[in-house]
């Protein structure tokens, strides 16, 4: 356990975005243009270690590195803080569906002997969260949230909960969805965003101790069946041309809020996910740094 403090405020101290048409929180906040090229992971983290990793895990590597660097936690020689102080909460619903479908095809068409042992780790849905931790040496709690449309905001909530409980001083929140044939068939032909966003959440005292720049302050979170109370807070809308964001949707909205705050906007931002057609709706309020 880390040191206890009476200040349980959680802040955002780092952010990263990778989507076709947007690779910064500012570009995300302004709305990615149509016709962006697909993210090429090797251009961001090099080719080493990408073989045998599924698309979602590769995108997760890129986002993890970028967000940790943005927060000042990752330098040329690795982490600049204690490995145990960094947890990971990842959110994805479609992450390993391609591996599951491909392995099943091989078993049905050729028998189990034709499958690749290298697929075993990718058959476990938490491979995105654990792979990010392994590559960057993050030894705090490691959680994979696969909770449908609200998943990204739920991930923010569980990261906040673990920080408040003293389980980690800071948590990398990662929201990512890959686009592939299995996903498109499942979505009735629609595409998925094929990218995502990552944020570093940190207890305010921990951020202050290392003189980190606070980019946003987290407010209340709710999840439930009820209709959310319409507030005056601004909302970021996912451009339709990007496709379905699913488990990345909530994290993208939070990253866009950071983009607005970075650009000098000061009004609060309300991130919302889920509709009346889903099992529940979730909401999270984000405030500009001065609100702290």
């Amino acid at each position: 356990m880390t040191s206890q403090s009476t200040d349980t405020t959680v802040v955002v101290s780092g952010a990263a975005v990778l989507l076709p048409g947007a690779d910064t929180v500012r570009a995300l906040a302004e709305g990615p243009a149509e016709g962006g090229t697909p993210v090429e992971p090797a251009e961001h983290v090099g080719r080493k270690g990408l073989r045998y990793k599924d698309r979602a895990t590769q995108l997760g590597y890129c986002l993890t590195a970028a967000a940790l660097k943005d927060a000042g936690l990752l330098g040329d020689d690795g982490l600049t803080c204690a490995p145990e102080s960094v947890g990971v909460v990842a959110s994805s619903n479609f992450g390993n569906l391609d591996t599951v479908a491909r392995a099943l095809d091989t078993i049905r068409d050729e028998t189990v002997t034709a499958t690749s042992p290298m697929d075993l780790p990718n058959a476990s849905s938490n491979v995105i969260a654990s792979s990010a931790a392994i590559r960057y040496g993050l030894r705090g709690p490691n959680l994979m949230v696969c909770n449908g449309e609200t998943s990204g905001l739920d991930a923010m909530h569980w990261a906040t909960t673990m920080i408040a409980a003293g389980r980690a001083e800071r948590v990398l929140v990662l929201g990512v969805e890959p686009d592939n044939d299995v996903v498109r068939k499942l979505l009735g032909g629609a595409r998925a965003v094929d990218g995502g966003a990552a944020l570093v959440l940190e207890s305010r005292p921990a951020a202050e101790r290392r003189s980190a720049t606070v980019r946003a302050v987290l407010g209340p979170y709710t999840r439930g069946a009820g209709t959310p109370v319409p507030g005056s807070a601004r909302r970021w809308e996912l451009p339709e041309h990007l496709g379905r964001a699913s488990g990345a949707h909530g994290v993208l909205q939070c990253a866009a809020a950071v983009g607005w705050f970075d650009a000098g906007e000061r009004g609060p931002v309300h991130a919302v996910a889920g509709t009346a057609a889903d099992d529940a709706r979730a909401g999270l309020l984000l405030m500009a740094p001065e609100a702290a």
Binding site: N142, V145, C146, N147, S151, R223, D278, A280
Partner: peptide, 22 residues
């Protein structure tokens, strides 16, 4: 893919969370 809809239908549960943690 997750268990929220099933829990909502049977128990009216709406604060549901599916963690896929091996």
């Amino acid at each position: 893919l997750h268990f929220g809809p099933g829990l909502r239908e049977r128990f009216n549960a709406d604060v549901t969370h599916t963690f896929s943690n091996a």
